[in-house]
């Protein structure tokens, strides 16, 4: 069977589908000062999984606010810098109007994913952290 670390090189999704891969990628991102990209990506996925039902509404709104405050509002943060202004406005509007759809963060997640696919993921595969691991 293919060792996990070779699968990690196939695609970002293969890497993010493996606990050890995530852990090593996080170590790399932390060193580069942009581990927030990874946490935000997972936060968006976790948010989408929360069922929109009456019992969950307060939790969903609270969580949406938490994600927004932590990653989007701080314009010096790496997630905010890599997210388009229109996407940030859209999320802000959703929260202000308390219209929290499961897809609220989808566009932002796509943009952050592109950033990882184009920059940090290829750099990770060339990094000494990954090469030493293999």
């Amino acid at each position: 069977p293919t060792p996990p670390y070779l699968k990690w090189a196939e695609s970002l999704h293969s890497l993010l589908d493996d606990q050890d891969g995530i852990s090593l990628f996080r170590t790399f991102l932390r060193r580069e000062g942009c581990a927030d990209l990874l946490d935000f990506w997972f936060a968006c996925s976790g948010f989408r999984k929360l069922e929109p039902c009456d019992a969950n509404e307060e939790k969903r709104l609270k969580l949406a606010r938490a994600i927004y405050r932590r990653y989007i509002l701080d314009t010096s943060g790496v997630v905010s810098r890599q997210t388009k202004p229109a996407t940030k406005s859209f999320i802000k509007d959703c929260i202000m109007k308390q219209q929290i759809d499961p897809a609220t963060f989808d566009q932002a997640q796509t943009e952050i994913q592109s950033t990882m696919e184009e920059n940090t993921y290829p750099s990770f595969l060339k990094s000494d952290i990954y090469l030493e691991y293999t």
Binding site: L16, Q19, I22, F42, A43, G46, R69
Partner: peptide, 20 residues
């Protein structure tokens, strides 16, 4: 009541793959 940080951490963890 969970703090925002706890809620956020729980959300991130819920999206991670389980140990294989």
């Amino acid at each position: 009541i969970d703090s925002e940080d706890d809620l956020l951490q729980e959300c991130i963890t819920s999206a991670m793959p389980k140990k294989k």
